[in-house]
Amino acid sequence: MLKIGLYFGTFNPIHIGHLIIANHMAEYSNLDQIWMVVTPHNPHKQKSTLLDDYHRLHMVHLATEDYPKIKPSDIEFKLPQPNYTVNTLFHLQEKYPEYEFSLIMGEDNLNSLHKWKNYEVILQNHDIYVYPRLHSGEMDPQFSDNPKIHRVGAPIIELSSTFIRESIKNKKNVTPLLPHKVWQYVEHNLFYKK
């Protein structure tokens, strides 16, 4: 059975940190593929701050085309908004019964997992692959010894899409922080300038 790691994000924009984590999970865990699931509307973020769904998905395509184990996914575009991870997992399991789906998240997200809708159902049915973060806070005891949670010693990346957007707005050079084709697309379309 193919093991798929789901890496959710608004990817506004996708940057080298996302790719480093996704590639590390593809190469150094027992996951066969990583799907970069572009979230149309994160329930915890303002929709107005997001680029159009199509642009963000296109940037993920541009960023991942040289990585055969990393695939863009628009699966959440077809689901009611705002969407919750538990619903997406249920939908994917129905659509692809031949695949085994796991979640990929940072330690900071793991620490707030207990606030997610039906998180117990997620933990019961899916493995979670966790990458380290510098400032993740105290580990929730219920997650520290759970056999469904796998810690992966990926590089610690302290880079955010928010930082990149702010930098572009302030006319800073962010060329090294984005995959080259993504940087070209952002520049060509004058994204994040205002």
Rank of each mutant, 00 (worst) to 15 (best):
A22N: 00
Y192Q: 04
D74M: 08
E120N: 13
H150C: 07
H150N: 08
K169W: 04
I75F: 10
M105Y: 07
L110F: 05
V174S: 10
H114T: 08
L159A: 09
M36N: 04
H114R: 06
Q184S: 03
A26H: 08
Q33A: 05
N173H: 11
A154P: 07
E27R: 14
Y192F: 12
K45A: 09
G137H: 05
N87R: 03
E100D: 13
Y119S: 01
K194P: 04
H44D: 13
V60M: 07
W116F: 00
I4G: 06
P80R: 12
E107H: 05
N189H: 15
D32H: 12
N87V: 06
E94C: 14
S73N: 08
Y7L: 15
Y67C: 02
I122N: 07
K193R: 15
Y28R: 13
P13K: 08
L177S: 01
E98A: 13
N83I: 13
E98W: 11
E120A: 12
L89W: 09
V60K: 03
P179S: 04
G137D: 03
F77K: 03
K117S: 03
Y99I: 07
T162I: 11
E138M: 10
L134Q: 12
L57N: 08
I16R: 12
I4N: 09
N109P: 01
H44V: 13
I122E: 00
P155W: 09
Y131S: 05
V38K: 01
M25C: 04
S144E: 13
L178M: 03
V121G: 08
K45S: 09
L110A: 07
L6P: 06
V121S: 11
I70D: 00
Q184I: 02
N170S: 10
Y84I: 05
I122W: 09
Q33M: 06
P147S: 12
I122G: 06
L113V: 08
L19R: 06
K115T: 15
S48I: 12
T162F: 09
E138K: 14
L92V: 02
M105S: 01
P82S: 06
W116V: 03
L79I: 15
I156W: 08
L134W: 03
R133T: 04
E120Q: 14
H180F: 11
D52E: 14
D66E: 15
N125W: 01
Y84M: 04
L51R: 02
K117W: 07
Q93Y: 01
Y84V: 00
E166G: 07
L178G: 07
P155V: 08
Y54A: 13
Y119R: 09
Y7A: 11
T10H: 01
H24K: 05
Y7D: 08
K181C: 07
L92K: 00
P132Y: 03
I128A: 08
I16C: 12
V186L: 09
Q142P: 04
I20K: 12
I164D: 05
Q93E: 15
P43N: 06
Y192S: 04
K78H: 15
Y54E: 14
D74Q: 09
L6M: 02
E158C: 11
L190G: 12
E27A: 13
N87F: 11
T162C: 11
K117P: 01
A154D: 02
D74F: 08
E65Y: 12
Y28K: 14
D145N: 15
I70N: 00
N173C: 11
T64C: 11
L79C: 11
